[in-house]
């Protein structure tokens, strides 16, 4: 994976496979503590404690179309390479939370990448699922909630290709603002 936004695209697919209806994605940048944390929380079907141990094993997958599952192992590798860690908390029928912490200034930390694009692609592909995206830099936050967007859109489908471009632009603008404010 070239950047962290691609990892988010990838890991959220697990939540979708687990039949989640609400997925929260949080990116928390704390340069002063030298951490960047990505948290993905879903209300899907959850995993047993045995499964939680196994998911970081590349030879474990719940799918049947192939024998390996590299999404979480790669995410974990990148976190650990930058001096961070990855942890998973999961309860059957409640959901799963995956927390990846990276060393903010570590030379091996991948760049965040185009996160607005990643979120908008997820929103477009899964119109029935609600997404909450929170991006925090230091103490400033931006919150994007598809439930608010859907309310405004009314009959206009959120997966329309033109609507998606507008949503992407909106998220990108706000993240841009957040980054500029944090540099002041």
């Amino acid at each position: 994976m070239k950047d962290l936004s691609l990892h988010i695209l990838d890991i959220v697919q697990n939540s979708i496979s687990a039949k989640a209806t609400l997925i929260e994605i949080e990116v928390n940048e704390q340069p002063n503590n030298d951490t960047l944390t990505i948290t993905i929380t879903d209300n899907g079907k959850g995993m047993t404690p045995e499964q939680v141990i196994k998911v970081t094993d590349p030879y474990f997958t719940s799918r049947t179309s192939r024998k390996v599952g590299l999404g979480i192992p790669l995410f974990k590798q990148n976190a650990e390479q930058s001096g961070g860690k990855l942890s998973i908390i999961s309860t059957i029928d409640v959901g799963t939370q995956i927390i990846a912490q990276f060393g903010y200034s570590h030379i091996d930390r991948p760049a965040l990448g185009n996160i607005a694009n990643a979120i908008s692609l997820l929103v477009m592909s899964n119109p029935a699922i609600d997404f909450i995206y929170t991006h925090t830099i230091n103490k400033e936050s931006y919150l994007f909630d598809t439930r608010e967007v859907k309310e405004i859109l009314g009959d206009t489908p959120i997966n329309n290709t033109q609507v998606v471009k507008m949503v992407e632009g909106m998220i990108a603008e706000n993240i841009n603002d957040l980054q500029q404010n944090s540099n002041k």
Partner: peptide
């Protein structure tokens, strides 16, 4: 296309957009 920054902006653009789309018959 104008920049969308807030949900308010999105609301305004949505009206413009709907005129360009023939959504209803197909939805």
């Amino acid at each position: 296309m104008a920049k969308v920054k807030s949900l308010e902006d999105l609301k305004k653009l949505k009206t413009q957009l709907e005129n360009n789309l023939n959504l209803r018959e197909k939805s």
